[in-house]
Nucleic acid binder design. Structure first.
Length: 496
RNA sequence: GGCGCCGUGCCCAAGCGGUUAAGGGAAGGGUCUGCAAAACCCUCAUUCGGCAGUUCGAAUCUGCCCGGCGCCUCCA
């Protein structure tokens, strides 16, 4: 088994990912704030986390993966401000889309459900638990209270703040240490209630807030950073193996999480930190405020295959600059199509492509595929080198397609390969499709089953009436049905 | 000011000191086909942003220069 190496933001180098408990990865990924639809940039980061999970499982590890849903509308400048921030949920509720919702709770629920749909469409693994911040306010309060008692936090008229000076390691993740922070080119909002401008909120006092809870400090709501500290600890314990998020999370969010948790437990919080680089779209920076972002549902509505979207999103390793383009999506679709064609051939050989095949066969194809898969896994263990991993996966697919006619042994080896590749990369088929398998039998065009049209065309071909045959093919194509003449007869499939 | 990434064929992209510079897309040619589609086969960088240097040997290491970009602000 190859060694799983991953770039670690904290030590700034590629290091083996070594779980504290052998073969059991405890992994926390920062999830989205559900105040609008998640976009492909969010999903680049979630897919990268999913690939860590898949790789770890391929190595035979047990994986306890936790990824949260932030359904509290935090202040936008939690780390620096009291007054300058604006609540994201409340802002969303006041927006045009917000008119559809009765209140912030409804709004959060709607976008949380949409997020889960997109998650499944992209074939992401299911985490062990998907906690919501609103369901863990108690833990956040308990932790905040303990930090006050330990002397790491203090109460002011407006809330409870973490005292950054009480944690000398502050800045070790991002390089934004206390001294350097002062030089940062940021518009820091001053707040006379805080001892230091870098101190960040653990609790905000606010009895007017749309979401509020009662605490030892009165009515209010928790700070943003404390939720992840509390939830990670609740499910994974004091020390976790890996923590991931988008690169923007490194500072302030993760820096603050480290400060809170390590001050609280006296132990290192996460042994490994992973940050996913933001993507661009057609060469432009993508941001919600710029409005130039794609959501998964946008792309699906345009007719793109979610698996092609996933393929495109992982075509460049997670830490590199990545430019998402329509051209890239087309390139990806071509390769996803190869896997589909492989499944067709396997089925044609009389083997169910979904059947569980334990091992690749001893046939020549099986040996070749076993090699391709080993290289694919090795690439993933090399800091998730998805470019190479995909190349190996495609190499295997081409090896399958190169065989003029698969025999049963070939087909079983091919089925094994596709299963293994799909478990590792999730690009062959959706593991847990929400939609039932496309209705291959019941569709009708102009009131006639597709099979009848196909039969009529076959008859027309036999009597060399190619004009009629071609007109039928054109009619079906218009309805999104693609025909394919094979030695075994005419097959049809619905286009993307 | 801090932290970091990248410049490889028409496009995307691997490559981390040493055989013929992976792979995909596009393009051109071919096989198959009534014609298509799909699939397969072939062709497609003496060269890796530039200039020095280290080395027996560099796309790969060092320095400088040129160019593109990200985060530190809503945002993954």
């Amino acid at each position: 088994m190859p060694i799983f190496r991953l770039y670690d933001t904290l030590s700034r180098k590629v290091r083996p990912l070594e779980p504290l408990e052998p073969d059991h990865l405890r992994f926390y990924t920062c999830g989205p704030t559900v105040y609008s639809y998640a976009h492909i940039g969010n999903f680049r980061s979630f897919v990268a986390a999913d690939l860590v999970v898949r790789t770890a499982k391929a190595l035979g590890w047990r994986v306890s993966w936790i990824t949260n849903i932030t359904d509290v509308g935090h202040l936008s400048e939690d780390d620096v401000a009291d007054a300058g921030g604006e609540d994201r949920m409340e802002k969303a509720l006041r927006s045009k889309e917000g008119e559809h919702f009765a209140n912030v709770w409804d709004l959060a629920e709607h976008y949380a459900l949409a997020y889960l749909e997109d998650w499944r469409a992209l074939n992401l693994s299911e985490p062990l638990v998907r906690p919501r911040a609103t369901q863990h306010v108690r833990e956040q309060i308990v932790m905040t209270q303990a930090l006050i008692e330990k002397g790491n936090a203090y109460e002011t008229p407006t809330g409870v703040y973490f005292d950054v000076d009480s944690f000398p390691d502050y800045g070790k993740l991002s390089g934004n240490t206390r001294g350097k922070l002062l030089d940062a080119v940021r518009d820091v909002v001053q707040d006379e209630n805080k001892r230091q401008q870098a101190d960040f909120a653990l609790w905000k006092k606010d009895d007017k807030h749309l979401m509020q809870w009662f605490s030892p400090w009165g009515w209010g709501f928790p700070g943003w950073h404390i939720e992840c500290s509390a939830m990670a600890r609740a499910y994974l314990g004091d020390v976790i193996d890996l923590h991931s998020g988008g690169e923007d999370n490194a500072f302030p969010h993760h820096e603050c999480e480290i400060a809170q948790t390590e001050a609280y437990t006296g132990r290192p919080f996460s042994r490994h930190w992973m940050h996913v680089r933001h993507l661009q779209v057609e060469g432009e920076k993508m941001a919600k405020s710029a409005g130039n972002f794609f959501t998964i549902r946008d792309l699906v509505a345009q007719g793109h295959d979610p698996l092609a979207v996933r393929y495109a999103l992982i075509s460049t390793p997670y830490g590199r600059p990545f430019n998402f383009t329509m051209q890239l999506l087309r390139d990806a679709a071509a390769n996803v199509g190869r896997f589909r064609e492989c499944e067709r051939r396997i089925r044609a050989a009389g083997v169910d492509p979904l059947a569980f095949v334990e091992e690749s066969g001893a046939d020549e194809l099986g040996r070749e595929l076993a090699e391709d898969y080993a290289e694919c896994l090795a690439a993933m263990c090399d800091d998730l080198n998805t470019s190479v991993a995909l190349a190996k996966a495609v190499e295997g697919a081409k090896a399958i397609l190169r065989v003029p006619s698969l025999d049963e042994a070939n087909a079983r080896s091919a089925a094994w390969f596709l299963r293994k590749v799909n478990e590792l990369l999730g690009i062959v088929r959706n593991d847990a499709p929400l939609d039932p398998v496309p209705d291959t039998g019941s569709r009708e065009i102009e009131g006639r089953p597709i099979e009848e049209w196909v039969a009529e065309r076959t008859a027309a071909k036999a009597s060399r009436d190619f004009d009629l045959a071609d007109s039928i093919r054109a009619k079906l194509a218009e309805a999104g049905i693609e025909l394919r003449d094979t030695p075994a007869g005419t097959e049809w499939s619905a286009l993307g």
